[in-house]
Design a protein around this nucleic acid. Structure first.
Lengths: 241, 241
DNA sequence: CAGTGGTCTAGACCACGTT
DNA sequence: ACGTGGTCTAGACCACTGT
């Protein structure tokens, strides 16, 4: 899509090697050494290393000091270091995800919400409320709050065409850098029970997410209520020492 | 503790700069350019970049192409890219965490568990069961399963002195590379209700974690049952594109 | 000992943002 | 035009693993 910015050489190498590894190599098989790859492709070892670092970070390969670089097991690579999105998770289960916009409004927040979004209490906030379903079974209710000052021209029409995150990035130049999430179990309230078509007092999973841009300003707060009997929240990440 | 391996120059720089930033600099303040730092310390720019990359990854600073490197907000740095441990979370809340070993046994797993740990059904598995409390209030029950073949000499005595993860690393040379977690809400069973001192059918949060080593072999499977009214699971991570 | 990945140097050019 | 971070080169030595 966005081919006006030149792709670095090591990024091309990442794609090339990833495809080669997936098609031709087996788990724990040793791949060429950094020096060997650099020599064959007539590039510097630095570039090879950057590509291999990226492949390791994404879970395709692993390096062992003094021994070499090896292919990882197939199961791990997907969605590393990132909490899976609802859509991806449902697609993995072979279910058809949909989302329906229930509410779109601009309002003055209470103090709690204002402090979460780092805005003054007289500043406006956008609220989006979605019902997410999978194979037409209601799965979760999602309420997202955005500081109006950062997204003043956001429209329902734009949201129907692109995802919120892509709009944030392309239209408003706000991309997510750090995400903080919390999960808790509780009993569902009657309003939510009706929307999710479960009994009052059923167990539900409440996920709250605050997203920050590079300057560590909060640009989004979302609270999700998910059916306890249907929804499992998955995440995978590379452990750092 | 472990000073027999020489620390790389950039790691020292990381510590040095981190301390300097925390003591002397303010949020969004610009720091010296990579070239300037390199020149002043008479080291190469590569080393400075490695240090700055690490500080960015840990959330202390952020870089903007064409502009410079800046100090991040103070709130973010802790425990990035890592799901907080129970102990850290409780300490942040000012509560005193404790854990009590309820069970330690070696047994033959059922098929489900065996497949989770990638062992044959005739292979042995170690089970550890803990009750975690905070200020003497029961918070969660934790059941951990380990492949016996990888930790054959693990003892209760060792566990009373060091954490499981540090034992894994130092005694058995198994360090965690990738972690996969899932969270779900459900209603508590009567056995667990007794241990956690809540009513039957209270809401609870079930967290399941599988940890993998560098070879992507599973080395741990843990299932936690946490009180819904007390426990919130937090995680923070840097968003990758 | 040779071969591997990990660190480091001293340069170079490019892409981006500000002046 | 200038300074910044991002990429890249062609080397070097170190630390670790195997033979």
């Amino acid at each position: 899509m966005n081919e006006n910015t030149t792709e670095p050489k090591y990024q091309k190498l990442v794609k090339q090697m990833k495809a080669y590894i997936q098609e031709n190599m087996k788990t724990n098989q040793k791949i060429l050494s950094e020096r060997e790859i650099a020599q064959r492709l007539s590039i510097s070892r630095y570039t090879v290393r950057k590509a291999l670092d990226e492949l390791e970070k994404k879970g395709y390969i692993y390096k062992v000091h003094g021994k070499g670089t090896f292919v990882s097991e197939k199961s791990v690579p997907t969605a590393l270091n990132e909490i899976y999105s609802f859509t991806e998770q449902m697609e993995q289960l072979g279910k058809k995800p949909k989302m329906e916009l229930l509410e779109f409004k601009v309002f003055i927040p209470n103090q709690e919400l204002a402090s979460k979004l780092h805005v003054a209490t007289q500043d406006k906030v956008i609220k989006l409320k979605y019902l997410r379903t999978a194979d037409d079974v209601p799965m979760m209710i999602e309420e997202t709050y955005l500081p109006y000052s950062k997204f003043p021209t956001l429209t329902v029409d734009a949201l129907s065409k692109n995802s919120l995150y892509s709009i944030m990035k392309t239209e408003f130049n706000q991309s997510i850098h750090v995400v903080s999430e919390s999960m808790r179990a509780s009993l569902i309230s009657s309003n939510e029970a009706k929307l999710l078509k479960v009994e009052d007092g059923s167990p539900c999973l409440n996920v709250r997410r605050t997203s920050f841009n590079k300057l560590n300003e909060p640009i989004e707060f979302t609270s999700c209520i998910a059916r306890g009997d249907q929804f499992v929240y998955n995440c995978k990440y590379i452990h750092q020492d």
